[in-house]
């Protein structure tokens, strides 16, 4: 909210830059959620923790939605700034691939009636598909693209003005909170669904 209404106008881009407060957190989260899924997959395959498997499949739809938001807000932003809503450059294409990956994961899981088998196969696919994440992350540096490189890094001074930076960080944290809430709710539903036959759940409900 702060970012959308109270930050100063950008000198070059005017008001359209405000999409940054949706676009950056969404893109950031689309990759972080995949990384979280990969960690959960390793935990599931190595230690056989059932909750990790539930977490993977509860993150997947949320990840797909967040990636879609990142792509959509990016293309809306692209119209006033780049003059085009879509460009086949490295960052955008690799994010689109990530979106397709999420959809593939959901459809793979849905194609099995045996949950345990589906969980195992899904975990393997998530781990192998993790190859894509560093490629998205580094795509702006490896290729000469239309997409700008990262404005905020951990090591360097940010190339963005503090009056816009702090709201951006705020919006990232806010978005993170929202998505974590959604993941918790979604895994809650998943646990109820999977454990519906167990006695502890009947006592609980």
């Amino acid at each position: 909210m702060w970012g959308l209404f109270f930050t100063p106008e950008d000198f070059v881009q005017g008001n359209s830059y405000r999409i940054i407060y949706l676009h950056v957190p969404a893109s950031f989260l689309s990759q972080s959620l995949y990384a979280a899924m990969a960690i959960a997959s390793v935990i599931y395959l190595v230690w056989r923790v059932k909750l990790a498997a539930y977490l993977i499949i509860s993150i997947a739809p949320i990840g797909a939605i967040v990636t879609f938001i990142a792509l959509f807000s990016g293309s809306v932003w692209g119209i006033p700034t780049w003059g085009t809503w879509w460009q086949w450059d490295a960052r955008i294409t690799s994010t689109l691939i990530l979106f397709i990956m999420y959809l593939g994961l959901i459809s793979l899981h849905a194609s099995f009636s045996n949950y345990e088998k589906a969980d195992k196969l899904l975990s393997w696919l998530v781990i192998v598909g993790f190859v894509n994440i560093p490629i998205i992350k580094k795509s702006v540096d490896w290729w000469s693209t239309l997409h700008q490189s990262a404005s905020i890094t951990l090591t360097d001074k940010p190339s963005i003005d503090p009056s816009m930076l702090y709201p951006l960080i705020g919006s990232i944290i806010g978005f993170f909170g929202l998505i974590i809430c959604l993941v918790i709710l979604s895994s809650y539903v998943q646990i109820l669904k999977r454990e519906s036959t167990k006695s502890w759940l009947k006592d609980y409900v």
Binding site: I97, G104, S107, L108, S111, L125, V131
Partner: peptide
């Protein structure tokens, strides 16, 4: 991955990995 589910699904989900 999609051993007895028809291979189109398997091919589609591994396609993104082949793109790099």
């Amino acid at each position: 991955l999609s051993l007895n589910k028809g291979s189109v699904l398997g091919a589609l989900i591994t396609m993104p990995i082949a793109l790099p």
